[in-house]
């Protein structure tokens, strides 16, 4: 039996990884290790958050993140309520603030929110008196995704210090890229972004990353290639000529990986456009950690929920 006192995070909410300290990230990743062990038990459930009610507010379509959070909450024995835009009163013109305050009036303990508008969880954190967990806000941040990515890499490499990570694709519209960049940089990794120049945001060097428009050059010394999903609508808005040209220039294929000196780890936040950002044999290849990311996502989200709940827990 293992017992630990809650080591509080510096912030009451998890809104993003920008500005989060190395100590806080390590605390989350270490805590996730204990929870991952639970997930491997015959009965993968603990009573840690029994009696706590968590609302999952999903104002934007999501499958894996929502399921991953729900699973994490259930594994911790929390009561969960799901709210998604399609079945909500948002369409009736109720404001986010009113929706949230109504739900809060029902005595809930925590809110997990996905929203298409950057800053929406920050706004909610000002309206409500409970911890808010950002499950993705527009193109701003997706902190639990980056935490699970870092967890996965730490599991494989032991440390993130000095790792060469190349993030490939649509950086402009990617909350995953932003959170991963903040987290990885804080943990001592080197990050390069690579993609079509129309999808690299202006003044991207503000993140302290290298930029390279040539994928073959960018991945030369890479330990990790992190491919992002390309949204098909970028084509109609004049940002990309075609997914065909994208695949030719930036798609990760065996042919592209063959000349590399190092064995490169492949990651992707999902869902994958097979044949666009990743060739199928690369996505399913032996160096792909894509399914590990998914499993680790549950453990990392359990860790974050637990740390934000303020509970003093016992894990047996």
């Amino acid at each position: 039996m293992r017992r630990w006192r809650t080591l509080a995070l510096k912030s009451r909410h998890l809104l993003g990884l920008e500005g989060m300290s190395k100590e806080d990230i390590e605390l989350i990743l270490d805590t996730a290790t204990s929870f991952k062990e639970i997930l491997e038990r015959p009965i993968p459930k603990v009573p840690t958050l029994r009696g706590k009610t968590i609302v999952n507010l999903f104002f934007e379509a999501s499958t894996r993140t929502r399921i991953s959070f729900e699973l994490a909450e259930k594994r911790l024995s929390a009561d969960t309520v799901n709210f998604s835009k399609a079945t909500s009163s948002v369409q009736k013109g109720e404001t986010l603030k009113d929706t949230a305050r109504n739900i809060e009036a029902m005595k809930i303990d925590m809110v997990v929110m996905r929203h298409s508008a950057p800053g929406a969880p920050h706004f909610l954190a000002r309206c409500l008196d409970v911890p808010i967990l950002n499950a993705g806000d527009g193109a701003h941040e997706h902190p639990t995704q980056a935490l699970l990515d870092m967890y996965t890499l730490r599991e494989k490499y032991g440390t993130l210090e000095g790792l060469n990570v190349v993030i490939v694709g649509d950086i402009s519209h990617s909350r995953v890229a932003r959170s991963d960049i903040w987290g990885l940089k804080t943990m001592g990794a080197r990050v390069t972004v690579c993609g079509p120049s129309t999808l690299i945001p202006v003044e991207v060097d503000a993140f302290g990353v290298n930029v390279n428009y040539n994928i073959d050059e960018a991945i030369q010394d890479a330990d990790v290639i992190y491919a992002l999903r390309i949204q098909m609508e970028r084509q109609t808005s004049g940002l990309l000529p075609s997914s065909r040209e994208y695949h030719h220039r930036f798609g990760i294929t065996q042919e592209r990986l063959r000349p590399l000196k190092k064995r490169v780890t492949i990651m992707h936040p999902g869902p994958i456009n097979r044949g666009v950002e990743l060739a199928s044999d690369v996505a399913d290849g032996e160096h792909s950690l894509i399914l590990d990311q998914v499993l680790n996502g549950v453990a990392v989200r359990m860790a974050v929920l637990y740390l934000l709940s303020g509970e003093e827990g016992t894990v047996e």
Binding site: E141, R175, A206
Partner: peptide
Amino acid sequence: EGRMSTLLGLRGMP
């Protein structure tokens, strides 16, 4: 549109 819109993920007006 600039450094801050890039950091915040908000759509920029150049």
